[in-house]
Computed example of a mutant assay.
Amino acid sequence: LDGIGSTEILHIFISNRSGRARPGSAGELVPGYEARIVDETGQDVPDGTVGNLMIKGDSTCAYYWNKHERTKDTIEGHWIRTGDKFSRDVDGYYWYAGRADDMLKVGGIWVSPVEIENTLVEHPAVQEAGVIGRRDADDLEKPMAYVVLAAGQQPSAELARELQDFVRSKIAEYKRPRWIEFVEALPKTATGKTQRFKLRQAASEAI
């Protein structure tokens, strides 16, 4: 079952439950915790809108040891800024959109790289994908995808166009990757998370 917790909160605070799981979601609030999803000004956003997740509960830490500035950036009274982007549906289920510093702003609209990645891996030719933002010739941020192909698949310009069209057919046009780079593997942490900063470095070096 999917769920989310953090070191600062010392516990899982959102989780699916047996018999009530909603595939793709992180689940519902765990009893004893409160959540807010807020915009950049700290105002609560409507259900269905992506914003910054804040959590309140008795298990949250008081501060970071010898890290005064980080404490001020993360802790606001009884609330913890998780650094994650989420939306909440009308039934109270929470949907992960990505880390706040990984989100893309395309045409003034926040775009989740996770949504694009999940769409790409629905294609039978794709094993996994990592999405980042890249500046185009007009200095506007657009999605770029690094794609690991499934066994037996060969990279080609034709396949790249096919994947772009596939994404366009599933989600909004502005979320379509403008560039697709085929790679043998994605850089990962020891816990299996994609290291997007390394993908951004690779994209920057290739320009």
Score class of each variant (00 low, 15 high):
186 L>N: 04
77 G>R: 11
135 R>D: 13
59 S>F: 09
23 P>S: 08
159 L>R: 04
20 R>P: 04
174 Y>W: 01
207 I>V: 10
201 Q>A: 10
184 E>G: 01
128 E>T: 08
59 S>E: 12
48 G>F: 00
64 Y>T: 02
125 A>P: 11
190 A>F: 06
33 Y>S: 07
115 E>W: 07
188 K>R: 11
47 D>C: 09
114 V>G: 02
122 E>R: 15
196 R>D: 03
195 Q>T: 00
198 K>Q: 10
74 T>F: 12
178 R>I: 09
183 V>F: 05
205 E>H: 09
33 Y>V: 08
159 L>S: 08
103 M>F: 01
178 R>P: 03
133 G>Y: 11
90 V>N: 12
44 D>V: 11
146 Y>L: 05
116 I>F: 07
114 V>Y: 07
135 R>V: 09
142 K>C: 07
67 K>S: 13
96 Y>C: 06
180 I>S: 01
164 Q>C: 11
197 F>T: 03
142 K>P: 05
61 C>P: 02
99 R>F: 03
29 L>V: 11
31 P>A: 01
71 T>C: 07
79 W>C: 01
110 W>E: 09
35 A>V: 01
44 D>Y: 08
26 A>K: 14
94 Y>F: 15
185 A>Q: 06
24 G>T: 05
13 F>H: 00
170 K>W: 05
6 S>C: 12
21 A>H: 13
17 R>S: 10
97 A>P: 00
24 G>M: 00
32 G>S: 04
21 A>Y: 11
89 D>T: 00
178 R>W: 06
121 V>I: 15
125 A>D: 13
168 R>L: 06
126 V>T: 07
107 G>H: 13
120 L>V: 04
171 I>C: 06
72 K>C: 13
13 F>D: 02
121 V>L: 04
129 A>G: 00
176 R>L: 02
44 D>E: 15
185 A>S: 06
7 T>I: 10
194 T>P: 03
150 A>L: 01
87 S>Y: 07
71 T>L: 08
55 I>A: 08
142 K>I: 14
150 A>K: 04
96 Y>K: 04
1 L>Y: 13
163 L>P: 04
89 D>W: 02
115 E>N: 13
12 I>G: 08
59 S>L: 15
7 T>A: 12
145 A>K: 06
62 A>K: 15
14 I>K: 08
196 R>T: 00
65 W>S: 09
73 D>F: 08
49 T>H: 11
87 S>M: 05
121 V>Q: 03
42 G>E: 07
2 D>W: 11
110 W>D: 07
109 I>T: 13
169 S>E: 14
169 S>T: 10
40 E>R: 10
200 R>D: 03
56 K>T: 05
13 F>N: 03
108 G>R: 12
92 G>E: 00
154 Q>M: 10
173 E>A: 15
154 Q>R: 14
113 P>S: 08
39 D>G: 10
22 R>N: 14
148 V>E: 02
50 V>L: 09
69 E>W: 08
43 Q>D: 14
2 D>H: 12
116 I>A: 07
173 E>M: 14
99 R>C: 01
123 H>M: 13
193 K>L: 02
144 M>R: 15
158 E>K: 15
53 L>V: 07
